[in-house]
Nucleic acid binder design. Structure first.
Lengths: 237, 237
DNA sequence: ACATTAAACGGACCTCGGTCCGGTTGCCCT
DNA sequence: AGGGCAACCGGACCGAGGTCCGTTTAATGT
């Protein structure tokens, strides 16, 4: 259970100033993933934002910088919360107040990369972006995510601490919505919502990493598998 | 890294005496999941078995009993290793020497249930068992696993502590082999090995639990989704 | 300027998983 | 029988995540 999770501070979907976006879900377990705006059909932040105090904002930034540095130099898995606090010359409590827990911090670290990916399939060029037909986008989506996760695998791995919390993060939520939308547009038959979950299951960081490193599969094979899967699902019954 | 993992003591696939089966993989990361025997095409234990000393065996049994009791009364997630040791009147070190880590203990606890499930689809009656056509078995497999995991969800959840280790457990390995075999027999086209991983991804305890409890889906829906998926994959291109 | 207050701060503290090592004991071999 | 030894035992110990609470401070209103 949490103590005072002022949200992971990750807006993820906003394109505006990175300084103010503060998701502050009150009680921990409630992640209201409803909502949707007209433009992209995607919106997550629970809008109960709360401006950070100046010193808090400063600390937050410094913490993220320091954390990124440490993660880069010794691997995300080998960075302790205490070392981050120490390196940022800040009390341990401050770290936890800001990011809730280790997962939250990692998620916040990922925020930058995540935005990049999101921009790619939300507003980027075809075949990922909105100017391509839905099926093509769907096909491109898998490989894009896989490559992305593979490139930052240590961070993504470190960001999925909890066993169940894995499916309640902003990135996951967003991908889910996106994939669902694409499936709808592709007129894929069947339980679209469920299908989206299944497809995303394939893109799970842990699984991809496992297949790549333990099973000796290569990215190309996974991509081919994705395309094949999408094609077969897309076929009308 | 491990210290002295005398294996989780789970044989899982053996039907013989439960007392001696001791998988003791020397170095931790090597889980040689090769092998296969003529009868079922399934075999896992790395065969470097080592008979336990009498007192060790006694302790192991008592630990499992006690652990099961505690898990039943207060939920697997709320059982600490120390409390188990204390309740079994044994030092903490003993617990870890025997089961390696928390995950190992949980896995060992699961062993019993797991055997049951395995027996069902390895030697049980149709449609799960060997006397049914492969496609029917495949269809029956998903729901069976889902129901099973759902029934013991707290244990299964607790058993997948590590982020990556999830895909290297005996149960997972066995299911993988089984599903692969069924896919082959069903003459499903495409990358069968990869498909098996994807299908198993759907059956992931965490995902099932999430869909059931957070997304408000019901078991029937998941089962229907599984059947639909299998059917569509089975269709020839 | 100053009072007020909610938010932020820091670090002592707690818990729990996991490790180490000095002492003990079951097992095998002669 | 008894000696040697590997396996086993217990519990002190450690590190890391997470919490609590007394103190400080930035923002806001007068």
């Amino acid at each position: 259970m949490f103590y005072h999770p002022t949200g992971p501070g990750s807006t993820f979907v906003h394109r505006s100033v990175t300084l103010r976006g503060m998701t502050s879900s009150g009680p921990p377990p409630s992640v209201p993933y409803e909502a949707s705006d007209g433009r992209t059909g995607l919106s997550l932040t629970s809008c109960t934002e709360r401006r950070l105090r100046a010193d808090a904002e400063r600390n937050r930034t410094r913490l993220l910088e320091v954390a990124a540095g440490l993660a880069a130099e010794r691997g995300a898995a080998n960075v302790t919360m205490e070392s981050i606090a120490a390196a940022a010359q800040v009390g341990k409590g401050t770290v936890f107040r800001r990011f809730g827990d280790r997962t939250g911090l990692m998620l916040a670290l990922l925020d930058h990369h995540e935005r990049q990916l999101q921009a790619a399939f939300l507003t980027g060029p075809p075949p990922l972006g909105p100017d391509a037909p839905a099926l093509a986008r769907l096909r491109a989506f898998g490989p894009a995510v896989m490559r992305h996760e593979h490139r930052h695998s240590d961070l993504y791995l470190a960001a999925q601490g909890a066993p169940d919390r894995r499916y309640s993060t902003s990135p996951h939520e967003l991908r889910l919505t996106h994939i669902t939308m694409l499936l709808r547009r592709t007129k894929v038959p069947g339980d679209v919502e469920l299908l989206a979950h299944i497809l995303l299951g394939f893109l799970d960081t842990g699984l991809v990493h496992h297949l790549l490193t333990q099973r000796g599969m290569c990215l190309e094979r996974l991509e081919a598998g994705w395309n094949d899967l999408v094609d077969r699902l897309g076929a009308r019954t």
